[in-house]
């Protein structure tokens, strides 16, 4: 069964990229423009994994991930942070918020697919 992925990024280009990469691997991608939008979308879906940007208006990636972890049915949903920043303190903050893992942009589509397959089992 195809995996359902939610991609949250304020950059349309990145959303399109993620969609293209994952769709090619047979995954179904839903997108959201920022954290607030992402939470709205989550009210109507239960993704197998979430990919989130960090720098976003309204609600950034940290806040979004924290909020997702508050939702009972999504406490164990893998959440991957897609970011250009690889600084250790950002990783720590993402982890504190509840992120499962991270992918440093610009991503390699193969690696993205592999990583999602790994965290979703």
């Amino acid at each position: 069964m195809s995996l359902n992925i939610l991609a949250v990024d304020d950059s349309r280009t990145m959303r399109d990229m993620v969609r293209l990469a994952l769709a090619a691997a047979g995954m179904t991608v839903t997108t959201a423009d920022d954290g607030v939008h992402g939470l709205e979308v989550l009210e109507g879906m239960e993704p197998d994994a979430i990919i989130s940007d960090i720098n976003m208006p309204r609600l950034d990636g940290f806040g979004f991930i924290r909020a997702v972890r508050e939702i009972d049915r999504m406490r164990a949903t893998p959440i991957l942070v897609l970011t250009t920043e690889s600084a250790p303190e950002l990783r720590a903050r993402a982890r504190d918020a509840g992120a499962t893992g991270w992918i440093v942009k610009p991503f390699d589509p193969h690696k993205l697919v592999k990583t999602i397959q790994m965290v979703t089992g």
């Binding site: 839903t30 879906m45 239960e46 406490r75």
Partner: peptide, 25 residues
């Protein structure tokens, strides 16, 4: 391991719900 960690295994029903066709917001 998920059980051991106390995380509820995903409810198959909700998983199915998630499998519906992509709904672009």
């Amino acid at each position: 391991p998920a059980v051991a960690a106390g995380a509820a295994p995903p409810d198959p029903a909700t998983r199915n719900r998630a499998a519906r066709p992509e709904s672009e917001p």
